[in-house]
Design a binder for these strands. Structure first.
Lengths: 250, 250
DNA sequence: CGACGCGTTGATATGGCTCAAGAGTGGTGG
DNA sequence: CCACCACTCTTGAGCCATATCAACGCGTCG
């Protein structure tokens, strides 16, 4: 059952490694490089390589040595923890511009899996860490991103510990809408996509897939969400969705 | 019901602000200053002030301006989130050496409350941030501590989302034992203290106080824990406790 | 066409919550 | 020193939201 990450990893290594210009990168102003000036960007450009993964591919396995750190350029990846008896909990979702890997840490304590097809902008860890030393813009941005993740993790703790199934779903949809509208910064009220299966959503929310299915069904029936197909939908009633999330009204 | 933090804050301001030597500080080698050399320590010593809070005192309120950042010198503090209808979830526990406040962030998104009597080593935020710029040892340590917190938050997400009441309690006791033995680094198998009430434990674990009480009672009956009084206890069977935690055996 | 992955829906079980009563414990004031 | 009160904790009984178990539908792909 346990497929070692390395098989896929090696395969990915063989991909043609094109190297687009950083200045034209879609995540240029949100990723770890956000604050870099042109000179610094050039330094990064020299040590970066692109790498892609198919939906479902394991990207990094718990305890694996981290030879690379990376930014998600496109696609969605999950951070997941598994217990001995097979219970699993997703502890993070990575969208474009999010960062994988930790300076000064050789390993991670969870699995990283490609949820959709994913493209990464990878930096070899050693040169990247060296670059941090001399580039405060990157160190600052890394710190900021770590703190953002910490805030997000704590919001999720509230969700996991205290919210009802319905509130969890509503909060999840709102989060999703926020992240997807960030990517294509215009057109509000647009069509959204669930990048995760019912099982994965359940996994993220501390529920079962049946409960997720029922709650989504209920919100559809109530006219809060309208589904185009199983994955694509629109938020038909933004206020009702927010009211159902249990979050502050402000 | 909502007591503004500032009342207590002002009161604390009036406390005599003794300023012990950093070199003799009990958290010298674990706190944000862990990597500082003697010169750097001296810099910190000049901008630090001590401040104490009584058990139950609010220390910082969600959204409050952060004029100070601080290390916990003694005592235990909690980070808590509250929903509109009053449901609450603790999202972190601060033990001696833990850090409060974020460089580059003017506010926090949760409440900080003294669980026991607490002494803080406070640094005014502006001078502290200036010091970070010139002192990589502090910046590095801050990053490391933020990443440790992130790891802890993710472990807690697994606990909140997937563990049973019994596993939650067992995991909590193990965490507590680890942190308390760190503080007095010798004598294993010693007497431990629950710094939190049943209600607060429940709050941390995403349970109700009744469930906490029942589970602790069960573990007592099974001979895993032996209680001296309601707060003080000993782990009578370390293996059984760990087996009950649901964590990996390694 | 069959099989498989994914999702829906229904029936039933159950862990932990809710509500309620009462027992320790510690502090306070007469 | 005792009586009383407030607070914390324990214990019991019943209930409910969500899990679990099970059957089936619908697309897609070989």
């Amino acid at each position: 059952m346990v497929v070692r990450a390395n098989e896929r990893y090696d395969q990915a290594m063989l991909d043609l490694q094109s190297r687009p210009k950083c200045s034209e990168c879609p995540i240029r102003h949100r990723a770890v490089c956000a604050r870099c000036d042109d000179d610094e960007l050039l330094m990064l450009e020299q040590i970066k390589t692109y790498r892609s993964f198919k939906a479902g591919d394991p990207m990094l396995w718990r305890g694996d040595g981290l030879t690379y750190v990376a930014s998600v350029v496109s696609g969605v990846a999950s951070l997941g923890k598994t217990m001995e008896d097979g219970r699993t909990q997703m502890v993070g979702l990575l969208f474009p511009s999010d960062f994988i890997g930790r300076p000064g840490r050789a390993a991670i304590d969870f699995d990283v899996v490609a949820v959709t097809d994913v493209t990464l902008c990878c930096f070899q860890r050693k040169p990247f860490e060296a670059l941090i030393e001399t580039t405060p813009h990157i160190a600052q941005r890394l710190m900021e991103m770590a703190l953002d993740e910490l805030d997000a993790a704590r919001d999720w703790m509230l969700l996991l510990g205290r919210k009802t199934a319905r509130e969890k779903i509503a909060t999840f949809i709102e989060m999703l809408a926020r992240r997807q509208q960030l990517a294509n910064a215009d057109t509000p009220g647009q069509e959204l996509v669930l990048p995760l299966t019912r099982y994965e959503i359940a996994n993220y929310l501390g529920l079962t897939l049946e409960t997720v299915s029922r709650q989504l069904g209920a919100m559809k029936k109530e006219g809060i969400l309208s589904f185009v197909d199983r994955r694509r939908f629109r938020v038909a009633n933004v206020e009702a969705l927010h009211a159902a999330s249990g979050d502050d009204s402000d």
